[in-house]
């Protein structure tokens, strides 16, 4: 095989200087031919294994979870959808009603999700104040594998969530994510939106789907611009 030296260095996960020196010192079974390096793949692989080094050719290394970094608020909220007029007069009741309406889960998963949400609520309330709650399971659901979703539920009647500011909750964002990393990213972005008083006011008007999405998209743009989160 023939490769440029910096490519070999990349596949071996080593600095180019080191590879250059090793070739010169004859410590690595690679030959220099002008700017290129000649080697036999099987031999180099064997050598790398015996020296506890990793040698991966590009094919294997490039398909590494492409989407993770790109998971954004808007697609997740779109995926979760909006639920208006969620009924119930207690935390348990509204959560039950909301979970039942979440589209993409199976019956078993819904049951499990409900239990986990309750479990999380028992630890501390997810009511973050200003009438907003973000219920979420403490550990990830097995059924949520690829895409995160945020289901926005407007409650018919405000419910006492024993939130931090004791204000009754009128809107819940049920956050389901495949990994902690994505969970934190979405949570932090959502929190950024909810910090804005005007947005909470806007939520109190129980807006329709399109207006809501538009608002979120505007926030998302702002976040990406400052790149703060």
């Amino acid at each position: 095989m023939k490769l440029a030296i910096n490519e070999i260095a990349k596949y071996l996960d080593l600095p180019v200087n080191t590879v250059e020196r090793w070739i010169r010192q004859g410590k690595i079974p690679v030959h220099r031919d002008g700017p290129d390096c000649i080697f036999k793949k099987s031999i180099l692989k064997k050598w790398a294994v015996s020296r506890n080094l990793s040698f991966t050719l590009p094919k294997n290394s490039e398909t590494k979870h492409p989407g993770i970094e790109m998971e954004n608020l808007l697609p997740a909220i779109k995926r979760g959808g909006l639920i208006h007029n969620t009924k119930g007069d207690s935390v348990n009741a509204v959560l039950k009603a909301a979970v039942d309406k979440i589209g993409m889960l199976s019956a078993d998963a819904k049951k499990e999700l409900y239990e986990r949400l309750l479990e999380r609520e028992r630890l501390t309330s997810t009511g973050i104040g200003n009438g907003v709650a973000i219920p979420h399971p403490r550990t990830q659901l097995p059924e949520v594998k690829e895409n995160a979703s945020i289901t926005t539920c407007f409650l018919e009647e405000p419910v006492d969530f024993s939130a931090v500011d004791d204000k009754p909750v009128f809107v819940m964002f049920i956050l389901l994510s495949p990994s902690v990393k994505i969970h934190l990213r979405l949570l932090s972005r959502l929190a950024f939106c909810l910090r804005d008083e005007s947005f909470v006011k806007f939520l109190r008007t129980t807006p329709d789907t399109d207006a809501f999405f538009e608002r979120i998209a505007a926030f998302e743009k702002q976040i990406d611009k400052t790149d703060a989160l």
Binding site: L14, P15, T18, W22, K27, I28, R51, N52, L53
Partner: peptide, 11 residues
């Protein structure tokens, strides 16, 4: 990290 790799390669 590099020290260890170097040591292995010197073998």
């Amino acid at each position: 990290n590099q020290y260890r790799k170097e040591l292995m390669v010197q073998a």
